[in-house]
Design a protein around this nucleic acid. Structure first.
Lengths: 344, 344
DNA sequence: GTTAGCACTCTCCGGCGCGGAGTGCTAAGA
DNA sequence: TCTTAGCACTCCGCGCCGGAGAGTGCTAAC
């Protein structure tokens, strides 16, 4: 579609704009990037690129800025591939891979690292439980009608909820329910726990109501709230971006980010296709994020996609680094999670 | 020290400035608050108040602004007592007291509520464990050298840590260690768990290393990290304050808040004396918070102070409402926590 | 097809003047 | 002696203006 020279102009211009946040003029472009032609020629090319929708001018007699279409072309075809340097490699190793602790901690650390190294905001969706393996359930009565249910799943994953029942419950009853369920479920993949698997036990236990409540929790309840959990880090970085020098803009974006469900939505949208996804400006389904871009990738436990992580910044984003970093972190997080699974 | 008329002028001026964020002039003051004297007289009083350090002028020929000393006098002697209205009462009930779930959730909700109703940032220090009562320990092996230790304490409080050992450990060994410790510790106040209480068991269990690691966790480890845990909510509210219209200021404050240890420090400083504390501007030990005020109060479990909560805003803060609200929430949180304790 | 030259446009920025708000001082009144 | 009206003065904020700078599009020559 675009001839070689137009591609080079678009690439140089986008690189420059990403770096400086200032509209880029022909003279500047000719000086900094040796395109081998004069500013006048570049002007002509720029006019063509604008006509085709890849660039636009904030006002006559200003330099050009890439449009969303321009960024899209840049991301798909032009940008250089970014490779992690020693700093990034060692940081990922130290702060994510080496944390052989709870799964959640690793994921949280991944979010922090991503934010710190890209200088954008990072978003990480907490993992879906389906792929993890049930290990143990404990029921501890708090008082007569409230019981703490604690579930441990395989890659270092602990969750607890308080279950309320109407009929008073004793420690012994808790132990029986827990024991039966543990026998039945040990080693079972979380996503495979269903009503059928749990049937036939109910009559054996002394407190059917408790049993029901816990079974509910196991089949659906635990996942529900966790799926929506999103780690958000580096929101402050956004304030450093010149596009958010205007405080009202910054505020409305930050307010949006605070409402985590929007982010979940964006990440879910992204995690439909595995691999790395780049959503640029207008492409974003959420209207309020039309001036932002999101780079995201999925992470896995074994072969199964269990979550997504990404960075969010202005459309004028360093896509090359963002994509590279997100991919790198996603891959190493996946590996590290696999390393947590019992027996590895 | 100050005669009645000076007190009234200082009060009116502070009220006005808190509301409008604009330097207050004599004419304005005379018109809005019927002080019964002319602007000229008020001018004289204001000049006196300035000389004594209660007010200052941003520049000649501007109105006056309370100084830190002025705010201090206002807080200690002048401000009206704020009482929670139906909105606040019902919100506290619905969102904190009625959440009869885990302690942490309640506390987190308290932080959110405080932020929402004051429009400042809220800070809540997670409770010290000392006052809670041990109920149950569970040890679940993840793999041969890593064990999840889960501790349940009385007011609906669950924590877990991953413990690493060198010598491989089996499920049975875990069960024995847990069982011995549970027998010994059930019903013991957390703060009373010490080495002496745990002595004599070590030889009974099959895995002394695991025993040691868990004992360590119980005597010191669990508390350590939790004490530093701080819930921070409503940081965005700060951006709405006109004193932070300047983005750089806003950014540096937000960056400071992100480093939670500073907040812990401030709250700890405040929780030395029980009751409500107001730290105004310069009084703050943290230099970067010299333009902010913090209103905080302690919350209790029974008679014991276990944590602190507060709000943070510009020195031009609605102290009356802030103090009232912080107190109200602290009291009701304390009550609600007591209500969680087994048997109530 | 490329490029030098040129006229034109638009933003940014410092200087200027003006209106408004507020002050301090003085002198007259209670 | 305290209060207040009057007045001159100060300083900020704002709109206006003009020049410098950056960039463009067009034209004509190479």
């Amino acid at each position: 579609m675009l001839d070689e020279r137009k591609r080079r102009v678009l690439q140089a211009l986008t690189d420059d704009y990403i770096q400086t946040a200032e509209p880029v003029g022909s003279r500047n472009l000719a000086r900094k990037y040796n395109l081998g032609v004069s500013p006048a020629t570049i002007r002509n090319e720029m006019a063509d690129l604008e006509e085709e929708g890849y660039l636009h001018q904030p006002h006559t007699s200003a330099g050009r800025i890439p449009s969303d279409k321009g960024y899209r072309y840049y991301v798909d075809e032009l940008m250089a591939r970014w490779e992690p340097g020693p700093a990034e490699r060692s940081a990922v190793y130290r702060e994510v891979v080496a944390v052989r602790r709870a799964m959640e901690e690793m994921i949280h650390e991944a979010a922090r690292l991503l934010a710190r190294h890209t200088q954008y905001a990072s978003v990480v969706a907490a993992p879906r439980l389906e792929a993890s393996v049930f290990r143990r359930l404990d029921l501890v009565p708090l008082d007569e009608t409230r019981v703490v249910a604690i579930v441990v799943a395989d890659p270092g994953f602990v969750q607890h909820r308080i279950v309320e029942v109407v009929r008073p419950v004793t420690q012994d009853q808790c132990d029986i329910v827990a024991d039966r369920l543990n026998r039945r479920l040990f080693g079972v993949r979380y996503g495979d726990i269903g009503r059928d698997l749990l049937s036939g036990i109910k009559d054996e236990v002394g407190h059917p109501e408790l049993y029901d409540a816990v079974a509910d929790l196991l089949t659906s309840g635990l996942g529900d709230r966790e799926t929506d959990k999103v780690y958000l880090e580096g929101t402050l970085n956004i304030l450093s971006q010149p596009e958010f020098r205007d405080i009202e803009r910054a505020r409305s974006l930050l307010a949006l980010l605070e409402a985590r469900d929007i982010l979940t939505q964006v990440l879910n949208h992204a995690s439909r296709h595995s691999g790395t996804t780049v959503i640029i400006g207008q492409e974003n389904p959420v209207p309020a994020l039309r001036e932002c871009s999101v780079v995201s990738a999925t992470y896995r436990l074994g072969d199964e996609v269990i979550g997504a992580l990404g960075v969010l910044g202005p459309t004028r984003m360093d896509y090359s680094k963002a994509v590279g970093m997100v991919q790198y972190v996603a891959n190493h997080l996946s590996e590290a999670l696999m390393g947590l699974v019992r027996g590895h």
